[in-house]
């Protein structure tokens, strides 16, 4: 399922909304999650999962081809942990 298929499904379920409103709703939600992570906040959606940001400290990496040492600066990576309910449902629990 892609974002546009998600929008179509929601538009079908909500015939009283314009499709462009559904588009704005979906975009708003992903934008809010993105903005929260960019502030370093966590996003916790009980039953679904939680998004957080993890810091990776600076390190000395190596160019695998030349073996040359290169400095890799600190970076932050987004992380998702599946919620208990969804994890159970993926494995056949109700």
């Amino acid at each position: 399922m892609t974002k546009s298929e998600l929008i179509l499904r929601l538009a079908e379920q909500n015939p009283h909304l314009y499709q462009r409103d559904v588009e704005r709703i979906v975009s708003t939600i992903f934008e809010e999650i993105t903005a929260a992570l960019a502030r370093g906040d966590r996003v916790e959606l009980r039953g679904f999962g939680a998004f957080s940001v993890k810091r990776r400290g600076p390190r000395v990496g190596r160019n695998p081809r030349t073996g040359e040492a290169v400095h890799v600066g600190e970076k932050y990576i987004p992380f998702f942990k599946t919620g208990k309910v969804l994890r159970g449902r993926l494995n056949g629990e109700r």
Binding site: E32, A36, G40, V43
Partner: peptide
């Protein structure tokens, strides 16, 4: 790091 937690309520407020 900020350490605030965003929840469903914040997402629906944003949609609202």
């Amino acid at each position: 790091m900020a350490g605030k937690t965003v929840t469903r309520a914040d997402l629906s407020e944003a949609v609202y």
